[in-house]
Design a protein around this nucleic acid. Structure first.
Lengths: 130, 130
DNA sequence: AAAGTCACTTGCATTTTGCAAGCGACTCAC
DNA sequence: GTGAGTCGCTTGCAAAATGCAAGTGACTTT
């Protein structure tokens, strides 16, 4: 969608940022504790490296995710939810509920996931104390 | 994503059905009362006819939407949410809340929309009495 | 009869995703 | 020291999806 057709509708605007499958798959992985590049590659959906790199970059750009250096030789970054990104948790939980109710053969999510609050998700993404 | 990589994860499974922007834009339109083909074409996001036809067909196939004949000469159908489709309302409401909180210049949704329940949405989609 | 409307369908250009290899900066094993 | 392996990307290209605009058939309207 081009910027020319930008809709002020909150749904359409939100979908410009999170309305693609891979962004939400990565969001799930971040919410369940993954943070390093290789972690995301390990997920059962088999995201490809170019899409992963591209989406992570977009998510950083859109303020959903922050990069954090976890080593210096060589420089390596992990990825963590910002509070803005963590606030998407209710959406993901809602999708989870819908799938469990309507789609056969979907796993029951762990209770910790359904009980999590956006604040807890944001704290998990915050910089650990020095 | 090929069926070969089907994940049992409720999030990923749900995203196979609703994890694309156009499906969710159409869902919004259905939730706010649109039902005829031309109604959806009128939305500010300017969906194209081939994508609209294709998505509506998929949504019918996946049980989110039912077609209903509204005239005979020529035969014409309108599209309405099933209870399964209506159960996606909390997801859309959640996205709306997120957008209003985090994205500038998004409209405040009408109260009826945020107060709607999936049951009300399903009733609105149900066959009117003969 | 010609023009207009509607719900799609179609042909093709453009964009996005998927596949698989490549690259540079390291570390590790010999 | 050297070659192999690992990691986090990048790249070239094939396949799939989206976007554009015209087309189609069955009507209604002028």
């Amino acid at each position: 969608m081009t910027k020319k057709n930008r809709s002020g509708c909150p749904i359409a605007s939100g979908l410009e940022i999170v309305g693609d499958r891979w962004t939400l798959v990565i969001l799930r992985d971040l919410l369940t504790g993954k943070s390093k590049y290789a972690d995301f590659l390990d997920s059962p959906e088999k995201i490809t490296t170019n899409i992963l790199a591209s989406r992570l970059s977009l998510m950083v750009e859109n303020g959903l995710v922050m990069k954090r250096q976890y080593q210096t030789n060589p420089v390596r970054h992990s990825y963590h939810l910002t509070p803005k990104g963590a606030d998407l948790l209710p959406l993901v939980q809602s999708l989870t509920r819908w799938s469990n109710a309507h789609l056969p053969h979907t796993w029951t999510p762990p209770a910790y996931f359904m009980d999590m609050t956006p604040q807890q998700a944001a704290e998990a993404g915050a910089e650990p104390p020095a």
